[in-house]
Design a protein around this nucleic acid. Sequence first.
DNA 1: ATTAGGG
DNA 2: CCCTAAT
Length: 654
Amino acid sequence: MGTAVGTVEDCIEMFEGSAQTSVTPFSPTNQIGNPVAYKLVRVSGDGSLVPATDEEILEVNETDMHIASDACQTVGDLATDEENLEVNETNIHIASDAYQTVGYLATDEENLEVNETNMHIASVACQTVGHLPAEGMSHLESSEAINSGLLQSDNVRPDTDQYNEKMLQKVEQEERLGNVHGSQVPSTPPDVNIQFSNEKKFIKEDQAHYEALLQEPISFSSNVQNECNVNQSGMIEPCSNAAASPKETALSEAAQKPDFSRVRGEICLDDLPIKALQETFRATFGRETTVKDKTWLKRRIAMGLVKSCDVPATNLTIKDNKLIGKQEKSSVMTNVVSKDMCDDVRATKPKDAPSSTDHVNATDHYYASEDYSSEQRAAKRVRKPTRRYIEELSETDEKQQNDKPMIPLKDQRSSEKPEVRSISVSSGKRVAVTRTVSLAGSEMEVPYVSHVRRSRPRENIMALMDYHSSCLEDRASPAESNFNLTPSQLNNEVVKRDLVVESASRPVQKEFSTSDKNNEEHILSEVDQDMEPEHIDSSGNSSDDMGLPIMQGGALRRKHHRAWTLSEVTKLVEGVSKYGAGKWSEIKKHSFSSYSYRTSVDLKDKWRNLLKASFGQSPSNSMGSLKKHGSMHIPVQILSRVRELAEKQSLVPR
DNA sequence: ATTAGGG
DNA sequence: CCCTAAT
């Protein structure tokens, strides 16, 4: 079957196919406060969604990924380490009209690893927050990802010109998909606040600025004007202050092609028939719609007018006019930023609630989020840095992973929708998105990134380069030439080939080069020469082992398992013969310069195993061959060679 | 920073 | 493989 990955638009097209793979935005219904989660699924003929298999996921790595979403929050979370490498050649375009878009970019080495990634996050969000740790700014600014569009100016803000386009696109998509989640009202996850208070350092006096900042993207959007007025001085006039209804305001001020007569004046959306709603929709968005869903239409219209996803589902049944005009809550656009959360926070902080008025000002917000973030940080700090190993071994119950109590603010809402256990944790440096979601009944894991480094520290930059380029190789070969081979088939074939090559004595490795160019050539030639299997199974492993640490059997596999290939073993043996057992760093330097993932410790361990194997093998020759499953069958020659060397070493200990 | 060993 | 202790 073919595999297609693309925009949500493409997604639609895929419905026409029988069974294809697509990246489908998971839009939990009535989700509030949970970031949208993406999972890879296949749309089977009957329209049901089937979790993608490893291979499919792998294939996606090579594909351009366009994600359009109306999530309240879109978290562009760049994975780290291997995970990053896996998206090296992926172009990720996230077009989102999310209320908030948080682009999290890793720092340090992690940035290096996303070098090849083009990440465009075009957001029409009311608010776009770039999670930029102050300390990491310099790094971030040097990141291509940043340069390529995530951050465009001093203020992280969406390309306003694209707002309308995206919005319409999205609406269109929803229509075409029949994906009408009328009552979805995402809200803002906690960490947003943190980011605001901590990263942006908003202060009370800056309220105007703050609001202006938030408004800016909106006021710049052209077609879908909203209820907010921003005069030239930068002052903001919340629509609530406007005498006219939001709609009126928006429409009268907006010089647009859409026919606004339809939406002029007070209109109670609830009273309108579907047809009228459609008209209104057209007037608002300047385009026709075929959606019949009244709720959806109403919400959509409201959203269009408010230019925010913050159209509460619960209020949807209320007259939208009132909703917008009367309930100042939603009109206080600037503060809708997780207004719910603010409430929650304030609930715990009796004092500063401005009692009567609904005037949730930035001050409150600020304080609230400040405290909130403080708590977060505190919690974060408390966390023990390196209990990784223990966790790995004992994390049978990964659901409990929330090492941070994560502020029980989520209260009812979280309990209402446990499907998406998506948690954003901010330590001011990282954002981790996790979870297991259930869609269409099936449970599946959403790729999530631990804030813990998942691979061994890199030796140096060259090692990184090595890995990087080899990774590119990895991705290219299996995905293209061996497209329809199963991993096992691949392995077999490769191993066979490797055996052949194996017999020939291998030339000494080229010297470790400090030149990118040279090094790359080195890698390439190397790969070209013997088509090292590890390049292939490495990718295989990356999906098998890293992607799914927990097997069906329940037994968890090592996070970083890379099967040793014969050529590696050979290199190792040769290395030992040359430099002697124990000189692992030497061996690594000379014989494994192109295998950055093999550390000297790995070499040592492997050698230890080889010794065990070689000595345990001689008594009963059958042992090695009878071991049908698991480790590869090390050729007797090598084992004998190993024994030979071992004896030599023991006899002549330096 | 490397090695040796235990798990 | 991963972790730690000892060099």
